[in-house]
């Protein structure tokens, strides 16, 4: 029967409109209980179709023109907000499809503009909803993925960085559920590394509270994974040229040095190696404050022994060269008069 009435295939814009109509009904709760299941099946089907337009399937590659049409129609109205709101009502497969759609749309250009970025700028409060995902085991991975895709846009990343949300990451990263904590850590890293100028500005403005939290909650966490990720990210941030002002400030603090020296002594090889990449900045600093220099002098023999034994699993010439330089620097240090 179905074959007889098979109409011509729907255009991408039509599928978006059909999806949106159903989302509106679910969002308002106006779906009658008896019809609910049937309509949910229909909605899941449309969402799958949207995904196929954007990603193609085993038979066909995606068509640029169709993707553009879909993207335009999607952002013409509030489809994204509806989709995010209704996500908890969808089944697992539809949620995954929706997440992939949202990810793809962030990259679609219409007349060489990322219209997703413009939309999100006008609807920046959507980030507040996505952030709540980390407090909900069921939604965390879906909302988390969407959030990470949205912060590809600089305006969005800037909003999240400067919002109160950022502070919550220090807690989310340490959640006991590995999947969720790791997802939060990935987003946190993205926020602090992706948009160089935004990050540099943020770190300069928020230096005090940010690194106080970073040190005490992350670098000195009792959780191995947290410490390992935090010291790696710290290295990534400080070694980035655009953050040189922050780096210069960071390596002049005794407290920071103490924390890094403790990490250098960890029994975990991975953490030791990552800690070295930050520690070397303290040693290589040519304008070391007297107290920093004196700590290094006081621990000279211990440090030299520790560094001498520190080796990477695979041969790493850069590491070996850095290490030699740091050891030479420490060996040649003399006590300084405190200013």
């Amino acid at each position: 029967m179905k074959g007889l009435f098979k109409s011509k295939p729907r255009t991408p814009a039509e599928i978006v409109r059909l999806t949106r109509d159903l989302l509106v009904q679910f969002d308002m709760g106006s779906v009658r209980e008896s019809k609910r299941e049937e309509k949910m099946v229909e909605l899941s089907k449309y969402i799958r179709e949207l995904k196929c337009v954007l990603y193609g399937n085993s038979e066909a590659e995606p068509v640029a023109e169709s993707c553009t049409q879909l993207t335009q129609e999607f952002f013409k109205e509030n489809t994204l907000r509806l989709l995010i709101n209704c996500l908890p009502k969808l089944n697992l497969e539809a949620r995954k499809d929706a997440t992939q759609i949202v990810a793809n749309l962030q990259r679609q250009q219409v007349q060489s503009r990322l219209i997703a970025s413009d939309y999100l700028e006008r609807n920046i409060d959507l980030m507040d909803i996505l952030m709540t995902g980390y407090e909900n085991t069921d939604m965390a991975l879906h909302y988390g993925s969407m959030l990470r895709e949205c912060i590809r846009h600089q305006v969005v990343a800037k909003y999240v960085l400067e919002s109160e949300h950022l502070k919550k990451f220090f807690e989310f990263i340490q959640l006991p559920n590995f999947d969720i904590a790791a997802d939060a850590a990935a987003t946190f890293k993205e926020l602090l590394t992706r948009h160089k100028s935004t990050v540099a500005e943020f770190l300069t403005k928020n230096y005090d509270w940010f690194f106080a939290e970073y040190n005490s909650k992350l670098l000195e966490s009792t959780n191995y994974i947290t410490r390992r990720q935090a010291v790696k990210l710290l290295g990534d941030m400080l070694l980035d040229r655009s953050n040189s002002a922050t780096m210069t400030k960071y390596v002049c603090s005794r407290d920071n040095l103490r924390i890094l020296m403790n990490l250098l002594r960890e029994s975990s090889k991975t953490i030791q190696i990552e800690a070295f990449h930050v520690f070397k900045l303290f040693a290589a600093n040519q304008n070391k404050p007297a107290d920093i220099a004196n700590i290094l002098v006081a621990n000279k023999s211990k440090l030299l022994r520790l560094l001498g034994e520190l080796k990477t699993d695979k041969e790493d010439q850069q590491f070996d060269a850095d290490k030699a330089q740091v050891m030479q620097e420490i060996a040649s240090l003399e006590p300084k008069e405190l200013a």
């Binding site: 991975l141 590995f178 790791a182 997802d183 191995y224 994974i225 090889k269 953490i271």
Partner: peptide, 19 residues
């Protein structure tokens, strides 16, 4: 995790996929 050849990101993606 300290001995595993995979980095944390790879492991994260694997367990995420699985769940």
């Amino acid at each position: 995790l300290d001995q595993s050849r995979s980095d944390l990101d790879t492991i994260r993606l694997e367990t995420k996929t699985m769940s």
